[in-house]
């Protein structure tokens, strides 16, 4: 059982990623090809078209770099949701074809679970309180009785989405490979003056839409310098995230905190959470940069965990689930622990 390899396909949004991981948890390849819109945000149909165009190339490249043959594969995993329908369906189609052609079992993976599991695999965290922050999700979660429970989440847009839109309003074009969060981070480092912005924390939940509206208005008024707006925007958004993480940490009394998802790469956010962890005697883990954004490796690894616990999906039932919540998924591979 422990001698297999899984090929995982990620395609929930703008990234088409393929990862190959051994059943022992060794990562052989991580290939990613992103759809970069001409202007505006991700157009689901255009992104799906991009994925369809590059799928063959990315899969071939992944196999080549992993130095294993298709016949060495044991399992195919794909991101089944949540995400953009057309993108998910493209990745699913590629996965189904591979599974049928190579006569391999297929596993549908929840994208959010995968972000947590890759964090645990790459950092060594075992039972963390997770802050999962990306373009599509903002979730504070921890494992309790069979599932990753959601203690806090955004009530409207995700923090990464908030950053993306803000950067587009800045009028800066996304440069190849440079994440919007990185652009804000660099500008914010030059900012000095804090301009008050809406700070919206409701219990352990958050809201970013008011912050975004106010920050964009500041940009349009052109009375403040851009660096100060970025600084204030980033300080406000990340303080909110850190506050709810700290509250959830006090509530769950976990001993580890894991930061995962695309926004995890931000060093200011990392620094804030590190301070909180020190104060609560919790260990702090950050997913390595190459696995923070969407990737096929996390899908492959979560596929392996599922498969080893008897979870597979027949091709004819492998419909994508665009609104599949994290807390709906049974995760039998996580050791059973109860609250308190």
């Amino acid at each position: 059982m422990s001698n297999g390899y899984c090929l995982g396909i990620e395609s929930t949004a703008d990234d088409f990623g393929v990862g190959i991981v051994s059943f022992k948890g060794e990562i052989l390849t991580n290939i990613n090809n992103s759809y970069i819109p001409e202007k505006g945000g991700i157009h689901p149909r255009e992104a799906a078209r991009h994925h369809a165009d590059v799928a063959g190339k990315v899969i071939t490249e992944a196999l080549k770099r992993s130095k294993i043959e298709p016949k060495d594969l044991t399992l195919i995993a794909f991101s089944q949701g949540p995400g953009l329908g057309p993108c998910l369906r493209t990745g699913a189609t590629a996965a189904r074809s591979l599974a049928l052609y190579l006569n391999l079992p297929l596993v549908g993976v929840n994208h959010c679970v995968a972000h947590i599991e890759i964090g645990k695999l790459t950092t060594g965290a075992t039972d963390p309180l997770t802050l999962y922050v990306s373009g599509g999700n903002t979730i504070v979660s921890a494992y309790e009785l069979g599932k990753y429970r959601i203690f806090g989440e955004t009530l409207d847009i995700a923090v990464g989405n908030c950053l993306d839109v803000f950067v587009r309003e800045l009028g800066i074009k996304f440069e190849g490979g440079k994440a919007p969060g990185r652009i804000v981070e660099e500008l914010a480092a030059k900012g000095k003056k804090y301009i008050p912005l809406p700070y919206t924390v409701k219990g352990m939940d958050l809201s970013f839409s008011g912050l975004l509206t106010a920050a964009v208005s500041l940009l349009k008024e052109k009375k403040c310098n851009i660096e100060d707006v970025c600084f204030s925007f980033q300080e406000t958004a990340f303080s909110m995230l850190t506050e709810v993480t700290e509250r959830a940490l006090a509530h769950t009394e976990k001993k580890e905190v894991l930061l995962t998802g695309g926004v995890a790469a931000n060093s200011r956010l990392q620094a804030m959470l590190k301070i909180v962890c020190e104060e609560h005697n919790a260990r702090f883990f950050v997913v390595p940069k190459e696995y923070s954004a969407d990737n096929g490796v996390m899908i492959a690894w979560t596929g392996i965990l599922s498969y080893l616990h008897g979870i597979t999906v027949p091709v004819e039932k492998s419909f994508v689930r665009t609104k599949w919540r994290l807390d709906e998924v049974e995760v039998p591979w996580v050791e059973k622990r109860s609250l308190n």
Binding site: Y194, E235, S239
Partner: peptide, 13 residues
């Protein structure tokens, strides 16, 4: 006082 927050924001909150 939250060390992770900048003083201006911290004091207001």
């Amino acid at each position: 006082s939250k060390k992770y927050r900048i003083p201006e924001l911290d004091k207001t909150i």
